[in-house]
Amino acid sequence: MAVETEATIEERTQAFRDHVTSGGKVEMTDWMPDEYRRSVLKFIEMHANSEIMGVLPEREWINRAPSVRRKLALTSKVQDEVGHGQLLYRLAEDLGKPREQMLEDLMAGRTKFHNVFHYPTHTWADVGIIAWLVDAAAILSQKALLTCSYAPYARTMQKICWEESFHIKHGYDIVLSMMNGTEEQRAMVQEALDRWWGPLMQFHGPPTPVEKDKDLAWRIKSKGNEQLRQEFLSMYVPRILDLGLSIPDPNLRYDEETGRWQYTEPSWEELRSVVTGHGPRSQERLAFRRLNYDQGEWVRQAVMTAS
């Protein structure tokens, strides 16, 4: 009897695998193999963490924004990103992990968030480069999630991608305004680009063979790391050069023969070290997240007692 049950689970898992690899969708209440649940949960949790950690470098600039309109726009972007965190943590909770646990794991450094949010910001130009290029790199991965096999995630990504388009445009607007400014402002943009180029090239992760990428196999995501980086380069290298900026990589060029961008190998060692909490601002940002979490405790208490 036990043997028969085991075989049934294997058959179900195989049927599930066939279902998702042929483009089938999964809803929260559908049966799914534990491994799929764990993978999709981990993916969404990391995404949610990145949304709420990603606002910390930007919030540092709300009080220093150069005009009221910029202040409003930056505040709106921060509000959007935290909202994305809310939507994504909700999806993850439905997959079985309580929110408190996810926040505890994040603050204790047991779970990760994107590399780009572990770095400091130096000038207002960083805010422009982050909103324009970091959000652009992120939206490419996010658009590849619109066809995610986990349907609640795919539907949520429609709203998120729609909001992200304002972030990118606002970032581009900041960069263009500065490029229309003084020599000093243009230099600030170039310096910011020089600072962010390395982390941007690392952002999508090292090239991983398709057969080794579980998230691809389960159709959680639809594009591999290298493909996303190639798309990013194809879209943004021309736009960056168009502004008269230069890209700090002497080896960067488009190879007509292979139809691919060539570039200096990004430092995967730096990526690994940064996302495991050893980036220049990793601990400071986590401490700030913890401080806010603790200071907000009375609000959570009040909400629960009021209802």
Binding site: A73, H170, N180, G244
Partner: peptide, 21 residues
């Protein structure tokens, strides 16, 4: 409008960056 894509008109800004370049 500061919250929306329509709130930002970039055409002229882009044209003047190109012209300056």
């Amino acid at each position: 409008s500061y919250r929306s894509v329509e709130g930002y008109r970039l055409r002229d800004k882009l044209a003047s960056v190109r012209a300056a370049r």
